[in-house]
Computed example of a mutant assay.
Amino acid sequence: MQKQQIHIIKNSVIAIAMTLFFTCKNNLKDVNKLSMSANDPVGVSDSINVKYTDSGRLSANLISPKMFDFSNRAFSFSEFPDGIILHLYDKSNAQTTIISDYAIIYNNTDLIDLRGNVIAATPTKDSLFAEQLYYDQSKEWLFTNQPATYRSKGYVTSGIGFDSDKDFKKAEVLGVTGQFAIQE
């Protein structure tokens, strides 16, 4: 009788242990969700200076005092609440500089959304002034559908949009609302 009771207890313990073993999950993503709000960044960086290279050649340099990393979201992005300075380099190492008060880089689309007092200046002294400008990193293309003013080679042109390659060799003001000549 005693052997039978030990056998029943042993089988019961094994059954309970197996039940616990198969019902418990160790899902790290679920654990991380509990400890962090989905609205919080997964990282905060101060004083960043990121250099992008292409075939060993410097192609861009992004400088910002602060970055929030939201790669924990389904549509991940990096936010620059204090603005950025973005230097773009062509094959001859000529530098176009873009500054803005605020920026977001959307990781899945390679778009940089620059906002607030956006100024772009080329090595040939062409300048663009806008409240918002997008930079498509994969196509190396700048564009906006917001009002923009473009200054180039003796002219200032305003319009309702702007479209250009990163070197401003194919620059076009869209929906021209005004143009006047200036003496340099």
Rank of each mutant, 00 (worst) to 15 (best):
S35H: 09
R73F: 04
N72S: 13
D54Q: 15
C24G: 06
S78M: 13
I85W: 00
K51T: 14
P81S: 04
K169I: 12
A103C: 10
I84A: 01
T53I: 15
Q132T: 02
L86H: 01
N26I: 12
T149N: 11
D69W: 01
V42R: 12
I9E: 06
D40W: 11
P123W: 01
Y52T: 13
S127V: 10
L58N: 09
Q137A: 08
D54P: 08
F68C: 00
N107G: 02
N117G: 03
L88T: 07
N27T: 12
Y150P: 06
Q4T: 12
S152W: 10
S100M: 03
G161D: 02
A121T: 14
S47P: 09
S164W: 04
N72E: 08
S76K: 10
A15G: 05
D82E: 15
D101A: 10
A148T: 06
D54W: 12
K66T: 07
D30E: 15
F75A: 11
A130P: 06
L174G: 01
K33V: 09
F70K: 01
Q146Y: 12
F22R: 00
G178H: 04
K169H: 07
D136R: 01
D54S: 14
S138K: 13
N108R: 05
K29P: 08
D82F: 12
V176H: 03
S164L: 10
V176M: 09
Y150N: 07
F22G: 00
D54H: 15
E184R: 00
N49E: 12
S35Q: 13
L20R: 00
Q137S: 07
I14M: 10
N145E: 09
E131V: 07
R57C: 06
N93D: 14
S45T: 04
Q2V: 13
T157A: 02
V176T: 13
R73H: 05
E184T: 01
I84V: 15
A181S: 13
V50P: 03
L174Q: 11
K10G: 15
A15M: 13
S59T: 15
M1I: 08
L34D: 07
K169Y: 09
G56I: 11
L133S: 00
Q183V: 03
D40I: 11
L111A: 00
L62G: 00
G159P: 08
D30F: 12
D90N: 14
F80N: 02
V13Q: 04
V176S: 05
D126F: 08
A171P: 08
D136G: 02
I98E: 01
A60D: 13
Q2K: 12
G159C: 08
L58T: 09
D113I: 07
F75R: 09
S55K: 15
S12L: 15
Q183I: 03
I8T: 10
W141R: 05
T122S: 15
Q179V: 10
A17Q: 06
S45Q: 08
V50H: 10
D82Q: 14
V176L: 06
C24W: 15
S164I: 11
S55R: 14
A120V: 15
D90Q: 07
L20N: 04
E140C: 00
N108Y: 08
T124E: 15
T124W: 03
F129E: 06
V44D: 02
A94L: 14
D69H: 00
F143S: 05
T109W: 01
N27C: 08
T96N: 04
F143A: 00
